[in-house]
Nucleic acid binder design. Structure first.
Lengths: 211, 211, 211, 211
DNA sequence: TATGAATGAGTCTTCATTCAT
DNA sequence: AATGAATGAAGACTCATTCAT
């Protein structure tokens, strides 16, 4: 029916509005009317760009991961010592969250959980438009190259890099999640230091004494 | 109002049904009618035991964490070398999930995310009956004693145990989450080994050679 | 099925409770559970005495008018000058209301309106168990004898006593109704005086001067 | 929330439908679905114009009294001898009811009682949006000017006009109420005559003989 | 006889979606 | 292309009534 959307900027505005609404109110409780309002357009117009609420969420889903992938990729791309990179990733995660939670859109981060939850469910039910697990593995693999690099260089232990990156990202994700709600009770700098202490040393090949 | 009826078994049945329904369909989409049906009772009867959908969820919330706390506490209680305990906790988590996901109630685990999400949101909005972050810290603290123990014994690095336990549990949680959806792509045994390798060595005090 | 009620006192207690509940909450909003509670019995027991909510209301209806008829009849029965009787009736109505509204059951009087309304409706729909209009005419007729008496004695104008009593009671009813809600703004004694002044003089045969 | 849609005609249709439904079925028993159906619109549309059932009733309430006030005001406004006015008011009330009850919407009048009852209750509970007693006094005061006029002119007895108008309207209201259900048993003309006979003569200053 | 736990029919209300303008 | 009024399917919750104890 609808041939194709037109105004790409408006489409973006809808997605941005949807992120905030879904994050704040949840997927079920987030209303199309609210999204339209926040996007500054009429309720009916939303349906010129997306054929259903579900499709809006799919777009949010895609957008969210694209941004995430872009963020990490950029971070990782710079030529750098693998140890430094890991440190960078952890520092970045903590600081990114701190900055995110500071401003008025702090809650936007909840969209991550919402996506996670819905992604899980859709995958389980086999109705996911995108394979959630595939998207996740795509992200894990961002980290894989520099783990490989570190192993190759003999700095990291010769572990299976696929599994290592899985653990790294999963752990990082969990820490972000918990930091999100508990950051008032913990010290950013201490967490950074200890996190790196544990993960880095866990990864590092023990120094042959005498070396 | 309702001075709570007596049939405690029926109450449990409702909670059990609610876990499955909320996990499968989400908090908003899970219908009271479905819960009643799964519990084998009439729709109205649910309201003899809980005054609202929200209250059912609160009961699920409480029940879930009590079980979780009970599970870990039991695991940790046995007198044992701190290093072994950490190994045990990680092994337990992987195996527990494997077992959980095996049977027909595999999806029940999603209730965890649902609780997480709702807990976050309620806390943000200041309407949480229970402080979600407090409950979480309660769980972190299950692990704290044996981290303390390990530090005391000079086996672990002398890090701040409060922050260490936070990181440990948060990481474990993230790993569980991701393992949940991706376990088909990763090897249980390999993950166990590598996880312990990283975390344990990260925690362990480097052996002074010659000592 | 149910052969016949047994404990007459309990039946009365139920009706008394029902009056208060229906008056306070309305016929639709008044709950059987509340009635049972106020009557100090179990919810199921109510159904041993009345087969339905509607039947309880019918009993309240009957009870209410019986009491009303008894009250006015007693007042009217005493041998007395017809003019004095009218004065008595009006005084009685104001004072009765004042006294009624004083105590904690002040709102009970609302049952009157509830009955009125329901009586109207049932009569319209032809489902009234008792003919509401018949009951009302029964009450008008309590007043008829002394209007007749007054006319006979040549004190009142020779008007049709049936229509006069209708007007008298209907007016009295309206005045009670309005006094009920507005008594704070009007002076009891002034109202009494003026009411009698208007109605009595309206009824009284003009004194032939020179008499 | 709803910035009230524009179709004022539709709003009126809903109110008109609501009057009939509430009058026929009562406030609690009158269903939104029925109102919508009678208004010829969809169930959901009702909520575009009113945010709740209660608000519909409030609108009916306001509408009803506005009409009543308008009716009496118009009647009273014409320059005329105060005695004639009272006669007019009483005649008007009887005839108005006769005409009202003639057509198919005869029952609509029951809404008056419904409003009365609800107004009472709300006022008692202190939840009335409009003060019911205030609205009533507003109506009493429509009559006050011509009572004053009559007293001033020396035609009426020098009674307190505030209390007189209260009694007049209250009595008139009661008479209307009872006439509503009992008009089949009484003669319109006779009632008119006798009513005026009683009230007018009750009010009129006795003619000084010799004058 | 008395009870209250169980029940499901019934109702308000919400909101994604449609469609006439 | 944009809009928002109209819609009805869907769902939480209430409560009169039943019935096993």
């Amino acid at each position: 029916m609808t041939p194709l959307p037109k105004d790409e900027a408006k489409r973006k505005r809808i997605i941005a509005a949807a992120i905030r609404v879904f994050a704040h109110d949840g997927l079920s409780n987030g209303k199309i009317a609210t999204i339209a309002e926040k996007a500054g357009i009429g309720k009916g117009t939303v349906y010129e760009y997306f054929s259903s609420k579900e499709e809006i969420f799919a777009a949010v889903f895609k957008d969210f991961f694209n941004q995430m992938i872009a963020g990490y990729t950029q971070l990782i791309d710079a030529p750098m010592d693998p140890v430094k990179k890991i440190e960078l990733v952890f520092d970045y995660s903590y600081d990114y969250l701190d900055q995110l939670l500071e401003d008025e859109h702090g809650q936007d981060w909840l969209i991550f959980l919402e996506i996670f939850l819905q992604g899980f469910r859709d995958e389980f039910k086999g109705i996911g438009k995108l394979s959630f697990s595939t998207v996740l593995r795509e992200i894990y693999n961002i980290f894989k190259p520099f783990v490989d690099e570190g192993i190759q260089a003999g700095v990291f232990k010769p572990l299976d890099s696929e599994h290592v990156t899985f653990i790294l990202f999963a752990a990082l994700d969990g820490i972000s999640l918990h930091y999100f709600i508990n950051r008032d009770h913990y010290d950013n700098e201490k967490l950074k230091t200890i996190t790196k202490e544990i993960f880095l040393n866990g990864l590092l090949k023990p120094q042959t004494e005498g070396a």
